[in-house]
Design a protein around this nucleic acid. Structure first.
Length: 547
RNA sequence: GUCCACGUAGCUCAGCCGGAUAGAGCAUCCGCCUUCUAAGCGGACGGUCAGGGGUUCGAAUCCCUUCGUGGACGCCA
């Protein structure tokens, strides 16, 4: 909520109080920007919302309030009642223009806000098993998580980017076995790779890397010893590859937590003991069960199998419990949609352990379908395997890859249009925004902008639209952070670029015949530049000064 | 079969804590470079917001139901 909206809100609250003697709660008054500017710069539906309390037609209520507002609301040039009872405010353009200096003064910090209130929030994303390269599905999650964190940072949250490494389960054993197989194969010996092992090119590469380091040392040792060695060698090398791919993709994590460390620190036993002591479990058929149905799950879940091993769930509970123990009040997980059924039991576990109901929130990332020329592309033409994050970046470029993943809400399946993302021409939406930035920079290179004391001439429709949109930026950032909706930032960017292009096409920014107006416009353009740059930064897309 | 998500223009999607005539890009068609970057601008065409019911001043938005699509339903991870 910006300065103008706040002021309007206060004036409306006052007017309601003095007219009807009703004290409104803080969030009761809603200010919005009408789609059609004929309906004012800002509007409120307060008269409709008061229908029941005041027992009269909204239009009458609205007129009574406007009478009062006309006296008190000095920033408005005109206040009207329209439709069924909307109150529409037309703001003096010099008041709207004050935003220019706010932006210029704040520079990179424009958009920064404290809506997060320093909330300690841990965002866990990607968390792919260290058994193979990251593919396009991970790319969606990585971009989404990264942008969420950028938004949280800008909005004053105390956030942590975390990657959970599943390195204590069966899949890591399979990794060890797979490398062991390739190792023997390299030396021309008989070999087997388990049916649920890993057959990718990356395993062969990693095997060769290991051979470069240790040669045939493990050829004659006992199988289990060799597999154990390859398991951890493989895990570490895969993880390094993942880290490199993420860096290539512009994503960095603050924290890497391994499942093995959770196990080694006895956190799994402790978690189970805690659950037993809290009477959240029972024994049946030789196994320990979690009474998860009592906390909203479909059925009870096994924590410790009759063979004495834990299920996948138990270390995960321990891990999440540990997140809370580290002082995080809010946990956000971005999981692939295939983990869908897993959400309820995890939330059940956290609730059972005494954490607030919504302290853990899981956003599911739906599948990505790559489409080229209208046909689904399942495999890379080069390798025959799933397309990796690295191939994707090489193919379409970093900016396009990230933009395409971030610009759509994650709760629906995404068709990633390869053809469109690759096109370096007019069709590509990424360039639309970047081109606006390059155009702005070009203008400012030729005609440097300077801050003015006062702006009084920026009152054409397109200028007003830009001023209002720039003024919205901070609240859009705060809202996108709160609702974890990075695509809102893309929508904002597209609109800002659109307003600018439209303005640029119909108005000469620098006009020798009107120096005063030109100076004001240049300052406006500088404010647009800063806002656009900050917005692009938030989605991790570059702002080229020339194109 | 049970549970969950989704269903908006020819295509890809916004909009969804109820608000004014449901928006954008692509595609199709028509205009605009002697002018600060045409990777741009302006316009046209295009809709039973899956169907039905309900809640109310008002529903794409909330509730119920039917249909369709996808996913999850292991003492796997």
């Amino acid at each position: 909520m910006n300065k103008i909206e706040n002021l309007l809100k206060n004036k409306i609250t006052e007017a309601v109080f003095s007219t009807f003697n009703i004290e409104l709660e803080d969030d009761f008054v809603v200010i919005e920007i009408p789609k059609d500017s004929n309906n004012g710069d800002y509007s409120t539906n307060i008269a409709m919302k008061l229908t029941k309390s005041v027992k009269q037609k909204p239009s009458i209520t609205a007129n009574m309030l406007v009478e009062k507002l006309n006296e008190t609301c000095e920033i408005a040039e005109k206040i009207e009642v329209a439709g069924v009872g909307f109150i529409n405010f037309f703001i003096k353009s010099e008041v709207l223009a004050e935003i220019i200096n706010t932006v210029i003064d704040a520079k990179d910090d424009y958009g920064k806000n404290n809506s997060g209130n320093n909330l300690k929030i841990l965002v866990e994303y990607v968390s792919a098993n260290p058994t193979g390269p990251l593919h396009c599905g991970h790319a969606r999650g990585a971009a989404w998580g990264d942008v969420i964190c950028r938004l949280l940072k800008k909005s004053g949250y105390d956030y942590l980017r975390e990657y959970y490494i599943n390195d204590a389960g069966n899949q890591i054993d399979m990794l060890g076995e797979s490398i062991y197989g390739r190792y023997r194969q390299y030396y021309g010996l008989d070999f087997t790779i388990p049916a649920d092992g890993y057959y990718g090119e990356d395993i062969i590469e990693i095997t060769k890397e290991i051979i470069d380091d240790v040669g045939d040392n493990y050829l004659h040792s006992a199988k289990q010893e060799a597999v154990d060695f390859f398991k951890w060698e493989g895990r570490n090398r895969q993880l390094n590859r993942i880290k490199a791919d993420l860096a290539y993709y512009g994503c960095h994590f603050d924290s890497w937590v391994s499942e093995k460390s959770i196990v080694d620190e006895n956190r799994v036993e402790k978690a189970l003991e805690k659950m037993i002591s809290m009477n959240l479990t029972y024994q049946q058929d030789g196994a320990f069960w979690f009474k998860s149905t009592e906390y909203g799950d479909d059925k009870d879940r096994v924590l410790k199998k009759s063979d004495g091993f834990y299920t996948y769930l138990t270390p995960d509970i321990a891990y999440h419990q540990h997140k809370f123990e580290r002082g995080y009040e809010k946990l956000v997980n971005l999981w692939g949609a295939d983990h869908h059924g897993y959400v309820a039991r995890m939330k059940a576990a956290m609730t059972a352990l005494g954490h607030p109901k919504d302290a853990l929130e899981v956003d599911l990332i739906q599948m990505v379908r790559l489409v080229e020329d209208g046909i689904e592309v399942k495999m890379s033409k080069r390798t025959g395997n799933a397309i990796t994050i690295r191939e994707l970046v090489d193919e379409v470029g970093l900016d396009a890859a990230r933009y395409f993943f971030v610009c759509k809400a994650v709760d629906t399946h995404l068709d990633f249009d390869f053809t469109l993302a690759k096109s370096e021409t007019n069709d590509n939406p990424v360039y639309y925004a970047q081109y606006a930035y390059a155009r702005i920079c070009s203008v400012l290179r030729q005609y440097p902008a300077e801050k003015l004391e006062h702006y009084s001439l920026l009152n054409c429709e397109k200028e007003i639209a830009l001023l209002k949109h720039i003024g919205e930026f901070t609240s859009v950032v705060a809202d996108a952070a709160k609702t974890r909706a990075p695509h809102k930032m893309c929508n904002y960017i597209q609109k800002l670029a659109q307003y600018f292009h439209s303005f640029y096409a119909t108005n000469k920014i620098c006009d020798e015949n009107n120096i005063k107006l030109s100076k004001e416009r240049l300052a406006l353009v500088e404010a647009i530049r800063i806002t656009l740059k900050n917005a692009l930064d938030l989605i991790g897309v570059s702002s080229p000064e020339r194109m």
